[in-house]
Simulated assay, not measured.
Amino acid sequence: MQNEYLPLTAYSEDQRQKAMDIYRLIEQYLYHGKSLKAIAKESDLSIRTHSILGK
């Protein structure tokens, strides 16, 4: 089964803003080589994705 993703317009402004906030955090890891541990410590969040997403 193939995953189908909703278009960005299907999400509220608040949901899109939260996604961008999360992206800005992980962008430091993806493109700048910063460790997840350092990002979690500085942002006072868990390294686990579900904790960042509030699940």
Score class of each variant (00 low, 15 high):
residue 4 E to Q: 07
residue 12 S to R: 01
residue 40 A to W: 08
residue 34 K to G: 00
residue 49 T to D: 08
residue 16 R to H: 07
residue 29 Y to G: 00
residue 45 L to V: 15
residue 26 I to K: 06
residue 9 T to I: 13
residue 48 R to T: 03
residue 6 L to K: 10
residue 52 I to G: 01
residue 24 R to Q: 13
residue 17 Q to D: 09
residue 48 R to K: 06
residue 33 G to I: 15
residue 53 L to R: 04
residue 49 T to K: 09
residue 14 D to N: 12
residue 35 S to I: 08
residue 5 Y to C: 13
residue 27 E to N: 08
residue 44 D to W: 02
residue 54 G to F: 03
residue 53 L to E: 03
residue 55 K to Y: 10
residue 35 S to M: 04
residue 13 E to A: 15
residue 7 P to G: 02
residue 11 Y to A: 08
residue 9 T to Q: 05
residue 40 A to N: 06
residue 1 M to R: 05
residue 4 E to T: 14
residue 15 Q to S: 09
residue 46 S to T: 12
residue 22 I to D: 02
residue 46 S to G: 08
residue 35 S to K: 11
residue 18 K to N: 05
residue 30 L to W: 03
residue 29 Y to W: 14
residue 34 K to A: 01
residue 9 T to L: 09
residue 27 E to G: 01
residue 49 T to Y: 13
residue 28 Q to H: 02
residue 54 G to I: 13
residue 45 L to D: 06
residue 28 Q to T: 10
residue 54 G to K: 10
residue 43 S to M: 14
residue 18 K to L: 05
residue 48 R to L: 08
residue 19 A to P: 02
residue 48 R to N: 08
residue 31 Y to E: 14
residue 11 Y to R: 11
residue 17 Q to S: 06
residue 44 D to A: 13
residue 37 K to A: 07
residue 30 L to Y: 03
residue 3 N to Q: 11
residue 2 Q to Y: 10
residue 19 A to W: 12
residue 30 L to V: 13
residue 47 I to D: 00
residue 25 L to W: 03
residue 6 L to A: 07
